[in-house]
């Protein structure tokens, strides 16, 4: 048994899911939101001759995806250590 208690196991999983859902909301927001559905609104903000919505669709969303994966890896490492279930 890797966890100290059943409660720990539940708490770890809940925290993991919360982090995952939060990041997936951002993931959906920058791509489906900013890049597609909200493009008409965001395009009011000019970026390099086109709108911010267009930039998110062809560039920005990809940069945010990178940040999401990096944040998840970092935060999960900390969470693993906190609960003593890391693999180091």
């Amino acid at each position: 048994m890797a966890f100290q208690s059943e409660d720990d196991k539940k708490a770890y999983w809940r925290k993991n899911l919360n982090l995952m859902f939060t990041l997936l909301v951002v993931w959906a927001l920058v791509s489906y939101g900013f890049g597609i559905l909200l493009r008409p609104v965001l395009d009011a903000i000019p970026v390099g001759g086109v709108g911010l919505g267009f930039w998110f669709a062809q560039q920005g969303s990809i940069y945010v995806f990178l940040a999401i994966v990096a944040i998840y890896a970092k935060k999960m490492r900390a969470l693993d250590r906190e609960f003593g279930v890391d693999d180091d």
Partner: peptide, 8 residues
Amino acid sequence: GGYVLLAL
């Protein structure tokens, strides 16, 4: 974006 799903 598929890599976000893969990683998470």
